[in-house]
């Protein structure tokens, strides 16, 4: 079974069409050309579909990188360690 960390990685690849080698858990929004306003919406929907938590618009627009997504989900009790 895929870990939550692996699910997040796959979600980021699918939402932003990243190459596998481009992905890092410290990747910043400013480094991803496809993390645009529609990308914000798509990521929020993807987080909901994958982890069951629907970020508020403020939370979704406030995400500045993968680390923020991890912090958001862990703040909702979703374990992304390891």
């Amino acid at each position: 079974m895929m870990s939550n960390r692996a699910k997040l990685r796959q979600l980021m690849l699918d939402v932003f069409l990243l190459d596998e080698h481009e992905f890092r858990f410290d990747l910043r929004r400013s480094e991803i050309d496809t993390w645009d306003s529609l990308g914000v919406v798509s990521l929020a929907v993807g987080i909901h579909q994958t982890f069951g938590y629907h970020p508020t618009p403020e939370e979704a627009t406030g995400l500045a990188g993968v680390a923020d997504v991890i912090a958001l989900l862990e703040g909702r009790g979703i374990d992304l360690a390891g």
Partner: peptide
């Protein structure tokens, strides 16, 4: 599949995907 997806990213804005 990744090569195809890369084309969408490189050539088209997200609204076109």
């Amino acid at each position: 599949l990744r090569a195809v997806l890369k084309v969408f990213r490189a050539r088209f804005p997200r609204a076109h995907w």
